[in-house]
Amino acid sequence: MNDKAHADLFNDMVRVLLENDTGLLEHLLKHTNDGGVHASETEKKKWNESQSYKITADSGRQLINVSAGGSIFDAIKDKGTCTFYAAAGVEDSPALPNVSIRGLQTVGQDNIGSGFAIDMSGNAYFFYYDAGHTSITWTKLPTESDRNRWDNGQLVKITQDNGKPIYHGFASETDYNTLTQTGMYLIYNQGINGPSSFNRVFLLVMSYGSTLVQIAYESVYGKNTYFRVLKHNAESWTPWEKQITLSDLLEGSWETPKEIKSNWKEYDPINLPVKYRKNLLGEVEIVGAVKGGTLGNNAVFNLPEEYRPKQAMHFVGVASSIGTPGVPQFHRTLIDKEGNVCVQSSSSNNANPTEFITFGFKFSTR
């Protein structure tokens, strides 16, 4: 029988089979008429190139199990990323001997890896090993140095959580006597028992049991600072004391005499005017120059009451040397308790004794 005869015989058999098996014919026709693609080339490529390595078991549990007496290092050192479980009693587990541990190796290649693990007591660990290592290096988290730093940290807040001072706003009236907890405060109200005329204050409170210190910094111009103390077993605070600054010492507006008397005149009203001022220490300074008046206890001018010394004071100043070339001249000035400023005498310059009399004195009113 030739090939054509074989083909005809096969076709006849298929035709008979199909004609006598309606169910089979229906299935074949349904498959033939199905226009949907059963698997595209893209899908086949994705399946063929997908990662076949598992990091967990098919059940979703750990991939690697290490029994008691085994070694975590030996079990995972040649693995990639993977999950593992080590029973209690594993020789290189960082946990206590009776505690199991579960972990994840996040980076792994031959004999190089790192990862994290948590034991059943809730302790966390970081681990790593490198090429040439024969064991895992474990570090408990947080580290010992971190725990010591946190344990030794200050437990009492002295500011808000954002680092800003504890705020007392306009809606309240702050009683400074109640602020006894060590801390930093910002008080934006008039308050009571605080420094006078302060309504915007940075306040520092330092407490050592029954001894307290409050330091108040005026926050608008930044120039005034006051402090007070509540001493051990004292019933009340000390009065608020102002802290003197260099700016305070340099401040103090200049005043001019209401009247220049006894025929005296200012020597140079533009460059050497007669004037005086007082700083916060109660020190009065007098500067300037006069000429032409009467020597003795006749006042050149008079100081206001708050600028006067507690007792009479004498000063020596520079006088004119006209007529006595090369010989320095001087004068003696009296400032008495009534505030009279008197040029009592000049030196041996008899020719021009009052031609040039200078003031450059400072004294205390306290």
Rank of each mutant, 00 (worst) to 15 (best):
T32Y: 15
T32V: 06
N33E: 07
D34F: 04
G36M: 09
S40L: 05
I55K: 15
S59Q: 04
G60M: 08
G69S: 05
S71Q: 09
D78E: 10
K79T: 01
T81L: 03
E91R: 10
D92T: 05
P97H: 02
R102W: 09
G132I: 01
K140E: 11
K140T: 05
P142I: 05
N152G: 15
P165F: 06
F170V: 08
S172F: 10
T174G: 11
Y176C: 02
N177H: 14
F202T: 07
M206E: 15
S207A: 15
L212D: 12
L212Q: 14
A216I: 03
A216T: 07
A216Q: 10
G222T: 05
F227H: 11
H232Q: 12
S236F: 12
E241D: 08
E251C: 03
G252D: 10
S253A: 13
W264V: 01
P273D: 07
G282C: 07
A289P: 05
V290G: 06
L295G: 00
G296N: 07
A299K: 11
V300A: 10
F301H: 11
E305N: 09
Y307P: 05
R308E: 10
A319R: 01
S320M: 02
S321H: 05
P328Y: 02
Q329L: 01
T333D: 12
K337T: 13
N340E: 09
V343P: 03
Q344D: 13
